[in-house]
Design a protein around this nucleic acid. Structure first.
Length: 922
RNA sequence: GGAGGGGUAGCAAAGCUUGGCCAAAUGUGCAGCGUUCAGGGCGCUGUCCCUUUGUGGGUUCGUGGGUUCAAAUCCCACCCCCUCCACCA
């Protein structure tokens, strides 16, 4: 069977028949299922594949189980990535052009067409969106996902913008939106905020905002500003460092006189300070003078060659007990005759105690790492990182720290910064975590926006409602509920709008665009109504806040049109199940719950969240830089949708990482083809209606329990268990049956079991199932058939016990054969007599093995496996063995004879035990 | 530091909720046999150690204790590993 042909065939059929578009007027109960829409910026990979495959199994099962299922999809385009692709291509960025030519050539064979398409991306970001969104649909369809494709939209559509405007109007009304100052990365040349994509090497070497505390050291008529990440060491300051060859500026900032590096002046202006430069001063001019720490202590200003004037405020105060740089710098200065005298008077001041370190941790680290001088910058950076981390998490403040004594460094850090700021002894200073350049060539610095919009999750009542929603929800795997609770507890304020990117503008402040996670929290509601909005030809102007108020909450004035739209919403909402990857838990899924709690009535809050873990390839995490990303397209072309789905579901539990290993995939392919071999064989057999023989009854019984197990497993959301039962267990049983059964028996089995088996596997491997369904049934679709339920009466423990007995016997014979060391000509099986059975029954009455004290062959045997035997159902051993002589002969290649212990004088007859015939080899 | 997850045979990975049919599924690797058989594929068998003309014994599931007639599974302590800690989609 050529999977590509078969899969394409059924994908086409499903699309043509609109098999997965639900009816709103259906009698069946509704099931509204969603998986987050994909971001439109390139191709999909196996990670998406897993999440959607899991989703598809749920959706397909529910559909077969009688629900009217809506599983729609749409596209996320908000934010900067799409813009970045477009502008990079417009700029002729070679790597980006190459990457997208690669992507596009997956779909287009004509090389000149590929170039044309990619060039069009540079002309308009919407060309990126329009092209890739079509391809995403194509990729998903090739995996057989049963999506309703008739409700597509993007987050940049006019209707969507109106919808998000309504959401933010609602937030505004409830008081959930706040404005406050906020630091961002900023390009001085573009005069705009920059994201990872705008920064050179921003993806491989990310840049972040580092918040420093600027300490004010009284100096002459003003203050020197030093910058620190460690305000908790303020009591340990021994001196100030200035760079001799740097230029500093005396400035008037916000009404006071400050001294900072000249380079810092422009940054300071961007950080929302009003600054006038009064005078420029060389660094040398400060040296040897004194200044006063925020705590009022006089300290000298010393030369610091390591001080970078282009980093923060350009002065660095010195805490030699806890900062390796400071410690080494002072050691270096001792070698300088000019400073020796002054420096030797400086003694490091310990302010934090850290387990495993002495009084001066910086000294310990420097000595251990054998750092000789300031030139060993790499080692010093490492030492600093190690010590800072250690002190931050494990450090405790010593008594010298006044009211902060005894506090953990972690807590003290923020408290001391606040305390100093409140005293007017400190200010906020921001710097980028590393020197960085924008792609335009401009320097990346930190600017402070004075009016950043935030969502305030701690606004009155919001968190309570969100927690209520969470409590009512079903979270699977259950272990993640705790994580939600934790996340909810520490969610505070979150910036929710940006200055740039695609998306929706804030209705009451159009300079701002709603940020990409904040505009994707309640869009499931949009799925329910978008079709009706289009059908009624409602224009964006119609989609006023009043319109959505009415549609979603029933408030305000209704019109026939509004009622029609509201009816759609009321039919489908709430979202019955949302499925996605665990990575979304701390952000998207949490915001999803908060947003629902904020804008919808409790009866429309979501019901369930299911999660799956990530996908790795050949044991390692996938990443673009490693070049080991497996694209969904490769899967469709090389693996096949059915095989991938089977692999993704059966290999790892939802809570476990899925390792995509080519070798294991191929091993599974062989199993899958074995299934097809059996289905081919079965479907070719003519129907046989005779009474089922024992072996057939055994298989029926097996399948009845497999069907039950499968259903229970999916209902429990244990998809791996479902796959194990419906695929592996069933296949093993069928294989075993195949080795035991006659053609007539196979025909019986086929007539009874083939169709239900196809049904059971349809959510998992839908393409193959449709193919065989067509062969067997001839009409309709497996995908829309009813979920199979096999009669309970098929369960037949007696048949299963009989088969178990036979297999145990086979296994015993196999153990014995090598021991007899001769080529067997004939094998006799001797069945134990009635007296032994009676005795055995007596022995089995024992509660525990140690109640059996005898030393007979039987008693030893029973003692060893008392509990096992208690659960073994007695069977008619002679009859079973006699019926199976042909089978036994086929396994061992010699004739079998079945004897009764009482009717034979076979030398081994004493060894016969109930359930365990004696074996005699001749 | 906080939160979460995990340590099982050469490797990968089930089992642990509900203790006993667990020397422990399955796949892979390795070995043998078979196959109208070069290889591959397919089928069967074996793969902790010892023992064996008869279906046996011993020691295992990170380490150490405990509960129990019985522990990979329950309890306690310890060691080690991984992930996340945000404003990025």
């Amino acid at each position: 069977m050529d999977f590509k042909t078969v899969e394409a065939k059924w994908q086409k059929t499903w699309a043509k028949q609109k098999a997965f578009e639900p009816k709103t007027d259906a009698q069946a109960p509704k099931f509204f299922f969603t998986v987050p829409y994909p971001y439109v910026s390139g191709s999909l990979h196996v990670g998406h594949g897993r999440t959607y495959a899991v989703g598809d199994v749920f959706a397909r099962y529910k559909r077969m189980a009688g629900f009217n299922v809506l599983w729609p999809m749409a596209f996320h385009i908000t934010g900067t990535p799409v813009l970045a692709i477009s502008s990079k291509i417009a700029d002729g960025d070679k790597a980006t052009v190459q990457m997208h030519e690669d992507y596009v050539s997956v779909y287009e064979s004509d090389a000149s067409k590929v170039k044309k398409i990619v060039q069009s991306f540079g002309k308009d970001p919407w060309n990126v969106v329009n092209y890739y969104s079509g391809k995403l649909v194509h990729d998903f369809s090739r995996m057989g996902f049963s999506l309703d494709l008739s409700r597509q939209f993007t987050t940049g559509d006019a209707e969507y913008n109106k919808f998000i405007e309504w959401q933010f109007h609602t937030y505004q009304k409830k008081g959930y939106l706040k404005q406050a100052a906020y630091p961002i990365l900023y390009c001085v040349r573009d005069r705009n905020a920059v994201g990872e994509d705008d920064i050179k090497d921003g993806d491989s070497d990310p840049v972040s905002v580092q918040p420093f505390t600027g300490f004010k050291f009284a100096f002459e008529d003003g203050f020197l500003v030093s910058s620190t990440l460690r305000p908790d060491t303020v009591y340990g300051i021994t001196n100030m460092f200035a760079r001799p060859d740097a230029t500093y500026a005396k400035i008037r900032a916000d009404g006071q006189i400050l001294y900072v590096a000249k380079e810092f002046v422009e940054k300071m202006k961007l950080q929302h300070h009003v600054v006038d430069v009064l005078e420029e001063i060389k660094g040398e001019a400060f040296l040897g003078k004194t200044c006063t720490t925020p705590l009022g202590k006089q300290v000298p200003i010393l030369p610091g060659a390591f001080v970078n004037p282009d980093h923060a405020s350009g002065f660095v105060h010195s805490v030699p007990a806890h900062a390796p740089f400071d410690y080494v710098a002072l050691q270096d200065l001792k070698k300088d005759a000019k400073w020796k005298g002054l420096v030797e008077k400086i003694e490091p001041i310990a302010v934090i105690s850290v387990p495993g370190y002495g009084n001066w941790p910086a000294k310990d680290v420097v000595q251990r790492m054998k750092i000789a001088n300031l030139k060993e910058k790499a080692k010093l950076d490492k030492a600093t990182a190690e010590l800072y981390k250690k002190e931050y998490y494990e450090g405790t403040l010593l008594p010298i720290n006044g009211e902060f004594a005894g506090m953990k460094a972690e807590t003290a850090k923020d408290k001391m910064a606040l305390w100093l700021k409140a005293k007017g002894a400190a200010l906020d200073v921001y710097e980028a975590s590393r020197p960085a350049q924008c792609r335009c060539g401009g320097q990346v610095v930190v600017a402070v926006l004075s009016d950043q919009w935030f969502l305030d999750f701690n606004a009155a009542g919001w968190k309570t409602a969100a927690n209520q929603c969470l409590q009512r929800m079903d979270i699977h795997p259950a272990t993640y509920r705790k994580q939600f609770e934790d996340v909810f507890a520490w969610l505070d304020k979150r910036p929710c709008a940006r200055r740039r990117g695609l998306g929706t503008r804030l209705p009451f402040n159009r300079d701002w665009i709603v940020e990409s996670l904040s505009d994707s929290t309640i869009y499931m509601a949009m799925y329910t109504i978008i079709k009706k909005i289009r059908e009624l030809k409602l224009t964006p102007e119609n989609l006023t806040p009043e319109f959505f108020d009415y549609v979603f909450t029933g408030q305000g004035k209704g019109t026939p049109q509004r009622d029609a739209v509201r009816a759609e919403f009321l039919y489908w909402y709430p979202n019955d199940q949302r499925h996605t990857a665990v990575a979304h838990l701390t952000n998207h899924l949490s915001f999803f719950i908060f947003a629902h709690a904020a804008v919808f009535r409790p009866e429309h809050w979501p019901h369930a969240i299911t999660l799956n873990e990530l996908v790795v390839a050949e044991g390692t995490k996938m990443s673009k830089s490693k070049g080991n990303v497996v694209s969904l397209n490769d899967i469709a072309n090389n693996t096949g949708a059915d095989l991938f789905r089977l692999y993704a579901i059966s290999t790892a539990d939802l809570a476990a990482t899925l390792d995509f290993r080519a070798k294991d995939v191929e091993a599974l392919r062989r199993r899958l083809y074995k299934l097809y071999t059996i289905w081919d064989e079965w479907s070719a057999l003519s129907q046989d209606q005779k009474t089922p023989t024992p072996v057939v009854r055994w298989l029926q019984s097996k399948f009845a329990s497999i069907a039950q197990k499968s259903t229970d497993a999916i209902e429990r959301r244990a998809l791996r268990d479902y796959a194990q039962a419906a695929f592996f267990e069933a296949l093993n049983a069928a294989e075993h049956f195949g080795s035991r059964a006659t053609p007539a028996e196979k025909a019986q089995a086929a007539a009874l079991l083939l169709k239900p088996w196809i049904g059971l596997l349809c959510p998992l491997i839908p393409h193959a199932c449709e193919e065989y369904w067509e062969k067997v049934e001839g009409e309709g679709l497996a995908s829309t058939s009813a979920w199979p339920a096999l009669p309970k009466e098929w369960r037949d423990e007696q048949s299963e016990a009989a088969e178990d007995f036979l297999m145990n016997t086979v296994s015993d014979v196999r153990t014995i054969l090598p021991l007899v060391k001769k080529k067997p000509a004939k094998i006799s099986l001797i069945v134990a007599n009635a007296a032994k059975r009676k005795k055995m029954a007596e022995l089995l009455k024992a509660e525990t093995p140690d109640q059996l004290t005898g030393d007979s062959f039987m008693e030893n045997f029973v003692r060893k496996r008392l509990y096992e035997l208690k659960h073994t159902r007695p069977v008619d051993e002679s009859a079973i063995l006699r019926e199976s002589r042909a089978y036994l002969q086929s396994v061992f290649g010699v004739p079998f004879e079945v004897l009764e212990e009482d009717k034979t004088d076979n030398p081994r007859k004493e060894k016969a035990l109930p359930g365990k015939p004696a074996v005699f080899v001749e």
